[in-house]
Design a protein around this nucleic acid. Sequence first.
RNA 1: CGGGGUGUAGCGUAGUUUGGCUAGCGCGCCUGAUUUGGGAUCAGGAGGUCGCAGGUUCAAAUCCUGUCACCCCGACCA
Length: 475
Amino acid sequence: MSKKLDAITSRSEDFAQWYTDVCKKSELVDYSSVRGCMIFRPYGYAIWELIQKQLDQRFKATGHENVYMPMFIPESLLQKEADHVEGFAPEVAWVTHGGHEKLEERLLVRPTSEVLFCEHYSNIIQSHRDLPKLYNQWCSVVRWEKTTRPFLRSMEFLWQEGHTAHATAEEAQEETLRMLDTYVEFCKNVLAIPMVFGQKTEKEKFAGAKATYTIESLMPDGKALQSGTTHNFGDGFAKAFDIQYTDKENKLQYVHQTSWGVTTRLIGAVIMVHSDDNGLVVPPRIAPNQVVIIPVAQHKEGVLDKANELLEKLSKNIRVKLDQSDKSPGWKFSEHEMKGVPIRLEIGPKDIENNQCVLARRDTGEKIIVSLDNVESEIERLLDEIHHNLYEKADKYLGEKTYIATTMEEFSKILEETPGFIKAMWCEDEKCELEIKEKTGATSRCMPFAQEKIADKCIVCGKDATKMVYWGKAY
RNA sequence: CGGGGUGUAGCGUAGUUUGGCUAGCGCGCCUGAUUUGGGAUCAGGAGGUCGCAGGUUCAAAUCCUGUCACCCCGACCA
């Protein structure tokens, strides 16, 4: 038992160190020899694959198609949209040479692919019959970050970026909100993470967008994590890249575009929101192993046979692994706990004699004995229950850590003493937004669709307030 | 990019102040035996150019300079 203590730093003692420990000890990632670039180990990559699969299903179900764009972008192409260049220029990686030859024109490694999609769309869209174009790509992008952390910020990260072109502004807006909904639903039903969502302020919106929407989750240290965004570009990029179509009246029109993305940062959110001092807790729907079977006294006649029989039976509907390594059972318990496997199934001679097995939940630690006759249905029920329990716990925390402030004194006090989301009124003047940031370090996270009128006046300047905003310190 | 910290075997560390090392220990790893319901026991064994590069010195893990990586706190971002 004591050997376990040095494994993971406790969360209350040092949250940042706890996070790093969990990432490494549960074998999700390793560092590479390139600064800020991380290695996805099989267990970490398996989680990403499950996220990918379930998101991709949702994209396909709403008519999207996957494509793949080049990873290099000529400098001149990036220059076409002024705000966009300005937003991304500070963090792009440049390719200046091919072999020994210096390139005529520098290439950048994509930090995002808007301009590539735009160039392509301008070539393939001619008629209203070509619309909408609903493309998505799964790829990695590179941003030259100054400080990095596993999953939360790395120089290269994996993501999906949806890029769509529509005939009308209304359709583009619908798409932007539809994908935001998709993200919120996915995070709830797959990752078991509740999100606060709404529109970003002018200051926080994406470089080149008309409007940006966001999903924001709350971490156990009280900091907000921007977990995904959707953007309505209006016709700004269309004008910069000359993406026009002929409408039914034979008139030339600019398309209206959107883009939206989530990244491997979601895994960071999953880790922080659900895990504990014993290590990772993986929500069942993205758990590479939903059940791990641990044979007890596996050298004894019949134990491994029974375990294999269970493995085969459960594998039909459940992701299940049998650990028949020659470690001791206690070692295996700790190991799979650290890796966050939702359910541990113990089977030993005593169980076999009684036609039963022991199921232990990772989320609560509870152990139950179930008959081998209905173990499948019991596990399926339990996996659902664990999912809901994780979501409820996170949602309760989110509720408890969401505060209301009507004065700057209250606002600062909350941030210092019990950090979390703060709901406060705002006049929509950027000066007030900046002042909050300078004074408290908090930024506007989003303006929720469900607006509440907490007060009449802006918390900063005291003028008439027009928006209720979620504020918080962010990752 | 600013401020602070850390680099010694796969992991965790002792030694660095005051140079004398042929670098010590625990875990893990390998072999064998006994074990197996919360990180088993015993016996034997392998594994290190002390982050890297220079310098000082008879002698460097130890002192000096540079550099790289990681961690924390800020500023920027998914």
